[in-house]
Amino acid sequence: MPSRQGLNRATPYFFLAPAAAVALVGLVYPMLRSVWLSFHEWSIGTPPESARFVGLENYRWLVADDAFWVSVGVTLAFALAVVVLEVVLGVALALVLDRDLRGTSLFRTIFILPMMIAPIVVGLIWRFLYNEQFGPLSQALKALGLPGVPWLSSPDMALLSVIIADVWQWTPFIFILALAALQGLPASAIEAARIDGATRWQTTWYIKLPLIAPVIAVAALLRLIDAFKVLEVIYILTEGGPGLSTEILSLHIYKTAFVSQQLGRASALSNLLLLIVLVLTLLLVLARSLRESRAGKE
């Protein structure tokens, strides 16, 4: 039946068409436009056709701009700190709590609550907690007779305060994945180690951790990529300040575009951030395929 054949061949494209159309219009085209705009100088309020071609000027300006490098440093410090803290805490807690606990599903529900609420709301909550006059954290310190901490007003503290909020929100993500991985381990491997006389510590260090490492690596990379997306919590907590001490790249893009109204430069920044995320994503793909090939051998 030729007509049936024809339908079959076209079918996947029919199924794909609506999603492809939306993605082309809403993602691919804007990103191409962003590349185009990064070679132009354009100001809000004028049609894009009036943009002036400036070649690599925007990129040259960026590389020479101190604020850009500060922002890169802040972004890397933030991303590395949250990923390391969340992975270490999340895995450690999973190892401690890998037990026959009652009420696990209720606890898991509670742990995902911070991840589900809006980043904007997380920002509000922590801005209140950090308030130096009447915030609960300052009050608790005062009750203990400790001096107040300038959580958000000191350039030395602000980044740490922002990191704490992220760790609060996302450590459960690593914890839940690590716990699931631990509980999915083959009983035989652990049993064998125990028969061979391995201590609990040795079993953890030489058997369990290596076995869950691939899952943790993928989870950590996902968190790392997400760390480059963070904007709202910091926007609400500090707006990048004091000074530039918490101005991560995504916030720097927003400010360059809509506060200083340098859209070409903001596009150049966007493309650089996109490039970083792209490289990390390729690493993620690599980590996944490594894991799959290892799983295939077993």
Binding site: P30, W42, L231, A266, V277
Partner: peptide
């Protein structure tokens, strides 16, 4: 790849388009 795009990257071109 598109799943990983930070929304901030889209603000400028989407605003313009």
């Amino acid at each position: 790849l598109m799943r990983m795009v930070p929304p901030a990257v889209l603000t400028v071109p989407v605003f313009m388009i």
